[in-house]
Design a protein around this nucleic acid. Sequence first.
DNA 1: CGTTATGTTGATAGCCGTCAACATACGTGG
DNA 2: CCACGTATGTTGACGGCTATCAACATAACG
Lengths: 239, 239
Amino acid sequence: MTAQTIPDRCETCVIRHRAICAALTKDELKSMNRIARQRIIAAGQVISSELEPGTAFANIVSGVVKLTKTLADGRQQIVGLQFTPDFLGRTFAEENPYSAEAATEVELCSFPKAEFESILKRHPGLEHRLFADTLNELDAARDWMLLLGRKTAEEKVATFLHMLAKRVPNIGCTHSEELNYARFILPLTRGEIADYLGLTLETVSRQMTKLKKSGVLNVIDNRDITVPSMDALSQVAGD
Amino acid sequence: MTAQTIPDRCETCVIRHRAICAALTKDELKSMNRIARQRIIAAGQVISSELEPGTAFANIVSGVVKLTKTLADGRQQIVGLQFTPDFLGRTFAEENPYSAEAATEVELCSFPKAEFESILKRHPGLEHRLFADTLNELDAARDWMLLLGRKTAEEKVATFLHMLAKRVPNIGCTHSEELNYARFILPLTRGEIADYLGLTLETVSRQMTKLKKSGVLNVIDNRDITVPSMDALSQVAGD
DNA sequence: CGTTATGTTGATAGCCGTCAACATACGTGG
DNA sequence: CCACGTATGTTGACGGCTATCAACATAACG
């Protein structure tokens, strides 16, 4: 067995087999481990700013990160939400096209820009993995364009909750695919949800109330959401 | 000199040095040429359908292709516009996440799926180029999310025309970057523009009239657009 | 010359944004 | 422990931007 050659913290890492690290050989993993650094980011802290040069890349070990773009007069749009084993950072660009901000407390496994790009250059397998991830993100972005351009406020909120239920850790149940039930904690405020859906926070609040009254949701304490039937939610979401 | 080893039609190809072919060595170019086939698609024809397996990839030699997604009840959103030397096709996925349709007459240089993927697997340089292109498309998609979620109808139309002026061949002038003037032919109908901007065709028409009256545009024959000052247009676009 | 596709303009309606008041939770400091 | 300020969330009243419905104009085409 050569398992001992894997760095300890990678061996015990919860995202070892789901993050980009899954695409690495043992030697590559060692190189990555040598430059990796763990970081805890408090909720609300900016990780990297729009139009400024990036300094690092990172895996999200836990927590939720929002990617935002802002117009000159302050109007803001969340253009991406990233969850647990997602990779953070725009490769092959000097400047960030958007800001990254911790929506919850976030745990990162971070890599300095220059060193990471140097490893990337030498390992086509890693680049292939990043490419595949990027294609999936592009698909997700285009799904969201359909939502932003053509869905009603109610459909937008329902679609958002449906997506969250599938991507965020659920409470007190396994992540069984057949399970037609979900319970989770909202990682975003009403205002942030609005910025993700192209709405105002008041409209988001009203639609949540509406979904609650129609029995599609049970809401405890404003952040603790229960979905009795994911099928019903999917119905309201419009696709 | 080894220039003679480049296939004739590639040697004379107008997108030879701008399409993905620019990332190929002479030998790779020969392999690609062997499987390439020229195709002319009439305006309005579907190139590939949503949720169906793709059968080919292609370079756009000339023309404009729209990528669309449609909800069950018929609401449609254009999630991408592709122009002259863009690459068409979703690598590493069985099914297309969206439809591709010719907006104008389109000239393609097309490659069968299996053969292209086989070449791709053997040539990391080609994959690197596709990766870089995909990252740019993701950035563009996120810019569009900001437009769809947060911009007004007038800003949307102005942003769209500004983007077109920079990407579509202009009439009677070089593509000089400093030139604060543009003239081009709209490749889309009012209805298609609406589907790209998350509006109705009536609203698009009204905003075009408004921009015309305010002097930001000169419109001849509904499709022939002149922009006297790109700066002024950019101003109205809101960024 | 009729038919169809495309585009413009007007009247009206409705969804969602804006403004505002109030409720609740949380943390800080007296 | 309570007072206070701040952040977050809900609900109501009202208004405006954009969708809807409709009539008409123009161009393209067989």
